[in-house]
Design a protein around this nucleic acid. Structure first.
Lengths: 150, 150
DNA sequence: TGTTGATCTAGACCCGACTCTAGGTTCTAG
DNA sequence: CTAGAACCTAGAGTCGGGTCTAGATCAACA
């Protein structure tokens, strides 16, 4: 049940380069073992961890933080609170990020709606070609264009 | 009502370095004007745009995309649909990102709950020190630890 | 007048996270 | 026996997004 790096790459979606890179960076819980010929051998557990790892990455956890986490895990029992703390801190970050994105999204949706409206009614000229002198006027129409001052 | 770069930095929260960098990158709708002595002069409109710009950035829009957008705006009226399209594409990205984050968050919350439970009941030993040979056993407890195989 | 502080330009540097190259070994199939 | 695929290491390169430095100019004040 040993897996080659190529196999793991295929199944994890990461490149072999990245797998070696992650190893150098200490992102595997256990030092990756080698065959006598020097080739790496992985196991199902590594794939499971890589899946989690990838999820953490894609939710914005840095490699440094992931490393911290697996270092705690490597130290064995006794630091459960720290591990939980680390995960909860990340939860908080993710939540904050979601709030931030939602807020931006709302603003954007509003602007797009107003714009689309104007465009549809063919009244967009003033809006879409703001100049220094009529910026204030355009403003009252909720423009979100980069203001011009030519 | 002219603003110096320092003033704009103060009010936008960006550094003077970044303002100059953004200018080089073509992220201002209008070429930033200079005083006869070469110093940049900004206006309120620039601050407004920088605020929007910052929001777009913080929602993950790349500088390249922002540049595309202001290039459309610079071309003047006639490409409203393209601008709307660009904004809507970004909306889609942001939505997708929110979904992704929410999903991760759910998974994390679940794992944290299960962990905290185990820790609270003092049963975490097996869970928190998984070894190759008992990984399967630990697995039945929904571990999210990096699996060990020592 | 001279120092302090803000600005200018061009270009180097940094960081995170990969990604790839060069040059060498090893496995596998024909 | 040999070609080609897969692997190895060390280290260089890339990309996005800044960040900073050096050396010069300029304004304002005691």
């Amino acid at each position: 049940m040993d897996l080659s790096i190529g196999e793991v790459a295929r199944r994890s979606g990461l490149s072999v380069h990245t797998l070696r890179f992650y190893e150098r960076e200490g992102l595997f819980a256990n030092p990756v073992r080698r065959l006598s010929n020097g080739r790496r051998i992985y196991h199902e557990e590594d794939l499971e961890w890589l899946a989690i790892c990838t999820k953490l990455r894609s939710s914005g956890m840095s490699l440094a933080t992931i490393r911290q986490y697996i270092e705690l895990a490597r130290q064995g029992p006794g630091n459960e609170q720290e591990r939980l703390q680390l995960l909860r801190r990340h939860e908080d970050h993710v939540e904050a990020r979601i709030r931030e994105l939602r807020e931006t999204l709302e603003v954007m949706r509003h602007k797009v709606r107003v714009y689309a409206d104007h465009v549809a009614r063919g009244e967009a000229d003033r809006l879409w070609n703001p100049s220094h002198s009529d910026a204030a006027r355009a403003d009252t129409h909720q423009k979100c264009d980069p203001p011009g001052h030519a």
